[in-house]
Amino acid sequence: MSSRLINWFRYSSPATFYPLAGKLIPWFAALAVLFGVAGLWVGFFVAPTDAQQGEGYRIIFLHVPASWMSMFIYMVMAFWSAVGLSLNTRLSGIMATALAPTGAIFTALSLITGSLWGKPMWGTWWIWDARLTSELLLFFLYLGYIALRAAIDDPRRADRACAVLALVGVVNIPVIYFSVQWWNTLHQGSSISLTRSPSMAHTMLLGMLLVALAAWMYSIAVALTRARAIILERERHTDWVVRLPELNA
């Protein structure tokens, strides 16, 4: 078995990345907890009760950051995909793979919190609101990405094919978003305007920003953890993995 990693990792070597990520994960996890506690504290105890919507509105402290993250993570995935395709780096594909499930989870969370919020407000679990519908389509895009990755055995082909799909997706997201908006106005559907409520105070914005930061740090920590697992799986035959102290303990 050859131990030589022939020119695969010109730009970023998993052998260097693996221990570095291991050191960073606790920090990001700690920051996630810190921001999360602060954000939820602001959301539940500091922010005032909404005059019209009562206490139920507080779900926006989860819903809005989850929606932000769901879109942001797809952008980051597309960024790594573009890097991977143009520079042919192995780590970019690993990062994109590691991010996809987290993005899908945030999208699902955004959908669930959105419908939970819709029930007390409109008496229905699902409203074909423009934002919720776009979020649903984004969820399908994530599922397609994950399914394509799962269907390809060769990691190199999987990385490259998924990178093309992520780029096609990211070009289409604005088109989809715009078309859904258009469709919504044509049909005069109801709109959940969570963020535009008149009592939108600074404390609410602060709370959402803190939770969003927590979600961001959490995503980094989880993606790095997953990336480490993928590296171990793909590189299990190389010398540096075999020599890892944690595997020989």
């Binding site: 389509l137 399908f140 397609g144 399914a147 394509l148 096609v168 289409n172 989809i176």
Partner: peptide, 12 residues
């Protein structure tokens, strides 16, 4: 798999 990938892109 093809349907899963393509159908969301058909929405617009």
């Amino acid at each position: 798999l093809l349907s899963l990938i393509v159908l969301p892109l058909y929405v617009p």
